[in-house]
Amino acid sequence: MHELQAHAEGVEIVGGGDKVTFMGDSYRVAEKIGMMPLLRFAVVAKAGAQSDDMEGFAAMYALIRDCIDASDWDRFESDATVKKADQDDLLKVVTDVIEIVTARPTRRPADSSDGPQNTSPNSKVPSISPRARVPEGAGELVSITDLLAARSTA
């Protein structure tokens, strides 16, 4: 539940260790996903690559490899081979990883010395779709920002 609150408040959890599930096993998500493999995959797909197109295969492989943490890559690649993963299985991993990565709070640039930005209370409230469900007990949570501030003054 603390991950949900941290995300809503835009606070980074150090050492999060995000994982993605693929065909029954979990794999660590890469700390950072480069834009170039995603762009290459998009260009190849837009150009009309077919499922048997070697350039499309190479672009998909590079993208998946960028999504999985290097420490789990050999196991992931072996499992995908043994379990006979198909294109849909592999694209789901990419989609799941992108959802995980985009849900991570962004880090403040290293050269930023102005401290937290002043924002209106409304800008801190996450938008929740009508289908989303707020976890039970969410109203009783203590602000991550307040906890971090208390920790730094202790």
Rank of each mutant, 00 (worst) to 15 (best):
M1H: 03
H2F: 12
H2G: 08
L4S: 06
A6M: 05
A6K: 02
H7W: 05
A8I: 00
E9I: 01
G10Q: 03
E12R: 13
E12S: 05
V14G: 06
G15I: 02
G17S: 04
D18F: 07
D18G: 04
V20W: 02
F22D: 05
M23P: 00
R28I: 00
V29Y: 06
A30E: 03
K32Y: 03
K32Q: 11
K32L: 07
M35Q: 14
L39S: 08
R40K: 15
R40D: 15
V43C: 01
V43K: 07
K46P: 01
A47H: 12
G48Q: 14
A49Q: 02
A49T: 04
Q50R: 11
M54T: 10
E55W: 01
E55A: 14
E55R: 11
G56S: 04
A58L: 08
A59R: 08
A59W: 05
Y61K: 13
I64K: 04
R65E: 15
R65M: 08
A70T: 11
D72Y: 10
D72L: 10
D72I: 11
W73I: 07
D74G: 04
R75F: 01
F76M: 11
E77H: 13
S78G: 09
D79Y: 04
A80G: 12
A80E: 10
A80V: 09
A80Q: 09
V82R: 11
K83Y: 08
K83W: 07
K83T: 14
K84C: 13
A85D: 09
K92L: 12
K92G: 09
V94T: 11
T95S: 12
T95C: 02
D96R: 09
V97D: 03
E99M: 15
E99R: 15
I100H: 02
I100C: 06
T102I: 08
A103T: 10
R104W: 02
T106Y: 05
R108F: 07
A110S: 10
S112Y: 14
S112M: 12
S112V: 10
S113V: 06
G115W: 09
P116L: 14
P116I: 08
N118S: 12
N118Y: 10
S123A: 04
S123Q: 04
I128N: 00
S129Y: 04
S129M: 07
P130R: 14
V134H: 00
V134E: 00
E136H: 08
A138S: 11
A138G: 07
G139T: 12
E140W: 07
E140S: 14
L141A: 13
L141Y: 06
V142M: 09
S143C: 05
T145Q: 06
T145I: 09
T145E: 10
T145W: 06
T145C: 01
D146Y: 07
L147C: 09
L147K: 12
L147G: 05
A150D: 15
S152W: 02
T153R: 09
